[in-house]
Design a protein around this nucleic acid. Structure first.
Lengths: 195, 195
DNA sequence: GTCTATATTACGATAGAC
DNA sequence: GTCTATCGTAATATAGAC
């Protein structure tokens, strides 16, 4: 690193600033004025780098989706006993969620007001279905409890995983990414109660 | 029911329309124009019933918070073994979340851009802490697993519970409120894996 | 209680100088 | 690549008639 702190923006560096503001104020609650203040450049300068607010959103959720779909292509997500593959996917989801925290956070809060948002929601549903199929296969093997509907169980485990974005902060004194992933896997598969 | 469908609004009836739109488009993504279209009256008529958008938000989150804090005052949440009280609170949270679905949904999505939103976030934190204390007491009794930090476990269980607002729809063919509550309690305490 | 009309401000985006 | 100035639209909210 021979260069000092960057004093001009690229779409990439601008994105990291924008995503942070989006997550603090909400996408709809963020104006170009807010972004320009946070980036330290004027509104019109932002338009030199990106076509507008929605392009920033599209870049952000794309990055989050790439991380998530990447999991499904990993060796351990494709081969082996479904319940083991499921456990790997759950663990890796927590890890990706943490490594790409601001981007995944934004993805998970998308509402569907614009074309970009609706596209993001659709891709998320695709991903959810892929994981649901895995849980279904594990249930067919008898490795996952049969007294809770597969669809319902999938949703609840997703809820537990995704909720990590609501409180995890990398700088905090709290648990590391690995520890959080361990806890999620443990609670999801073995539950809260002491046996 | 002798009266036909109400053709004039009170703050209460207007609230139920507004909350629905807020949940579809997001609070910041909803304009008074959107509300007036959904309610079938003009923008200015809305101001006859409420002082503005923020009052609608305040009424909605107040209702959600009343439902949640009400749980803590119930007999089974106050007396008995902590782990049993915890189980009761978890079950009742799911039930309240479903019976007051649109109001709790809105509460859980609040960001903190206005004074009302910051007040709602603070009250939510208070509630979370009350439940965390219960889990701590259950852990001290040895009734809850000791290999996952209490604070972390609380957050993950809350994540599972709260995620219900993201997909539960009362009209759907899917699980009833009771079935969902059963599933959440089962997964939270016993986990996904077949023993 | 509801309406139309309007005041006022905020927003996203563009034009054009440097 | 960044700026100031500005355009056109959409936002919250109010005034005042019926």
């Amino acid at each position: 690193m021979t260069t000092a702190r960057r004093d001009t923006y690229t779409p990439e560096t601008l994105l990291s600033v924008a995503v942070q503001v989006f997550n603090e104020r909400g996408y709809d609650g963020t104006s170009m004025e807010h972004l320009s203040k946070a980036a330290g450049i004027s509104k019109s300068s932002i338009y030199h780098h990106v076509s507008g607010k929605e392009e920033l959103l599209r870049r952000a959720v794309s990055r989050a989706l790439e991380g998530l779909f990447g999991i499904l292509e990993e060796e351990h997500a494709r081969v082996g006993r479904p319940v083991e593959r499921l456990e790997h996917v759950v663990r890796r989801m927590v890890e990706v969620l943490i490594s790409e925290l601001p981007y995944v956070t934004l993805l998970l809060r998308v509402r569907g007001n614009t074309e970009t948002e609706r596209w993001a929601l659709e891709r998320r549903r695709d991903f959810d279905h892929r994981v649901a199929e895995l849980l279904k296969a594990a249930a067919d093997d008898g490795d996952v409890r049969g007294d809770v509907e597969v669809r319902l169980a999938t949703r609840l485990v997703f809820g537990m995983i995704n909720s990590v974005v609501e409180w995890y902060r990398p700088d905090a004194r709290g648990a590391s990414g690995r520890e959080v992933a361990d806890a999620v896997v443990l609670l999801a598969f073995a539950g809260l109660r002491q046996n």
